[in-house]
Amino acid sequence: MMARLAGKRVMVSSWFWIFSLISAFKVKVKTGEDVLLQCQAPRGAAIELIEWIRPDLKSDGYVFFYRDDHSYENYQHPSFQGRVELKNPQLQDGDASVILKNVTINDTGTFECFVGNQGSEPQLISTITVTVPPPGDAAGHKNEEPDGNNRGHVGLAVVKVKTGEDVLLQCQAPRGAAIELLEWIRPDLKSDGYVFFYRNDRAYKNYQHLSFHGRVELRVPQMKDGDVSVILSNVIINDTGTYECRYISSNTGGTEPVTPQLTTITLTVTDSGGGGDKDEGKTDEVTKGREEEDVNVGLVAALSVGTLLLGLVVFVIIAQHLKQAAYQLPPEKLGEQPPV
């Protein structure tokens, strides 16, 4: 089976055009916790097949396998049976993410999500590197502040998208948590303003950076299951940069302390249709036209000056001739003799 999976991965590049969004995540989680493995297909995609795999596993079996509206546990690797479920069973808005429960140190590794729609070959959508340190390992507490406040899982993602498209900036709070504050920021922006700001059950447009006005909205307005992802619409080249999601949450009962957490996404926006080349071509045409116009003007000017000089020479010659004619003796009258 793994040989067949490897074959599918080889075919991914030929189907790259189907989905424009590919994500790469790095997640660190502690043993015994649940971890969200994010995978986002295009919104509205008719998903027929989902394959979650661990390429580094030596034995056959999927992490998760879904086809024709059903998941198949008998296709799973034994170590994942009973521990993986879809985050969104209805696959709403193309969400093919899964939740891996009760993680162990053996879950450390690379997870890949392939999605197929309408009979196409499965295509790679996201790659996630999960690190699960051994219990008690100091590395397992790198996400905690010195004061003991746990920042939770720090997610790192790399996303590429083309101009004019919409992009999902994913951020996941604990399921069932009550979100009290949500901030999406661009640390590299020199001016003030948020990408998105939410507090007290509402978003505040006046707190946003002007370039993001009217272009950012919550993917799930009610933030169901802790989904605090946002959709950035109609992306432009200037949207390239680093985005950070920060939120403060507590459980619905209010017995847990407030927990600030962080997710970082590096977004790269490329030109969708060579618009820059077109503009460059237009510029070249304009420049060439101007050069031709300058040549024509120069030629006309040179001809005009030449004509003027030629006319002046002719005028001088004629004037000299007339002058000489004016000083000649008058012709002798017929029959008269010159005086002696």
Rank of each mutant, 00 (worst) to 15 (best):
E145S: 10
K142N: 13
T108D: 04
G116L: 09
E145T: 12
L124D: 04
V159N: 10
A177W: 05
E112I: 13
K162N: 11
S126R: 02
I125R: 00
P122C: 00
E165R: 15
A173Q: 05
V103L: 01
K160A: 00
I128G: 01
E165H: 15
S126I: 10
P187R: 08
T110S: 11
S120V: 05
K142E: 13
G109E: 15
D107C: 09
N117P: 01
V159C: 10
I99G: 13
L100N: 11
V115T: 00
T104E: 11
R151H: 14
G176T: 01
S120K: 09
R151T: 03
I99P: 03
A139V: 07
C171N: 04
E112T: 11
T163W: 04
L182R: 00
P122D: 06
G140W: 12
R186G: 09
L124M: 13
V159E: 02
T129Y: 14
K162R: 08
S120G: 05
I105K: 04
D107W: 09
V132I: 15
D137N: 11
N117V: 06
V132T: 12
P174E: 03
L182K: 00
P134I: 03
P146E: 05
F111S: 08
P174I: 06
G152W: 00
D137G: 02
T129Q: 14
N117D: 08
A173S: 09
S120N: 08
G140M: 04
P133R: 12
G176S: 00
P133Y: 04
L181K: 09
E165V: 02
I125H: 04
P122Q: 04
Q123V: 15
T127Q: 12
C171D: 00
K142T: 11
P134A: 15
V161D: 02
K101V: 04
K142I: 11
C171T: 00
V158F: 06
N150Q: 05
Q118F: 09
Q170W: 11
I105C: 15
T131C: 00
R175F: 03
R151L: 10
A173P: 13
G152Y: 05
E145L: 12
T104Y: 06
I185S: 05
N150V: 02
T131W: 06
G148Y: 08
E183R: 06
V130T: 05
